[in-house]
Computed example of a mutant assay.
Amino acid sequence: MEIVIAIVIGILVTIGTYLLLSRQLLRIVFGSSLISHAVNLLIITSGGLKKGNAPLLGEGKIGFTDALPQALILTAIVINFAVTAFVLVLSYRSFKANGTDDMEKLRGNEHE
């Protein structure tokens, strides 16, 4: 199962990199979001699937699962949502102010 997830992670990183290298600002935002989702999948996959009890002290149970990968992913999802919303608002304001979302025109390199 980890092989399939690794292939999916590779595809997401490839598509995200392709979108990051485009000229439109909205594609760049979606590319960074896709790469963030790929990293989340990578963290979950590297954490592994472990079966066990909840990590509670005083229960006397031996095997338990590690909750750290899930906590990292939940935090990363919230941060990714906030950053994506912020960058989408910035790109919208940039489009309204400049009339374009083409990165070359925003840089002033439209004749090169």
Rank of each mutant, 00 (worst) to 15 (best):
L90Q: 06
F86A: 15
V39G: 01
L42G: 13
D102E: 12
S32M: 15
E2T: 10
A82C: 11
T17Q: 11
K51P: 01
G48W: 04
L90S: 10
A67C: 12
V83F: 04
M103D: 03
T100C: 13
G60F: 02
A54T: 08
I43W: 08
L34V: 03
D101L: 11
G47L: 05
Q24D: 15
I3L: 13
L20E: 06
I73S: 03
F30V: 12
S91P: 01
D66V: 09
I62S: 11
K96P: 00
L49S: 06
V39L: 05
L19F: 14
H37A: 10
L41A: 15
A97L: 11
S32R: 04
G60W: 14
S36G: 13
V29K: 02
N98S: 08
V8S: 13
G99L: 07
G10Q: 05
A97N: 12
K105T: 13
K51D: 13
N109E: 14
A76G: 08
G48I: 06
A76H: 06
L49W: 04
L34P: 03
Y92C: 05
V39K: 00
N98F: 07
A76C: 08
I62M: 08
E104L: 14
T17A: 15
L88N: 03
P69F: 12
L21M: 08
I73G: 02
G10R: 02
V13G: 05
D101R: 12
F95I: 04
L88M: 14
A67R: 12
L41Q: 14
L34W: 08
T100V: 02
R107N: 01
G108T: 11
S94P: 00
T84Q: 04
T45G: 05
K51T: 12
L41R: 07
S91A: 15
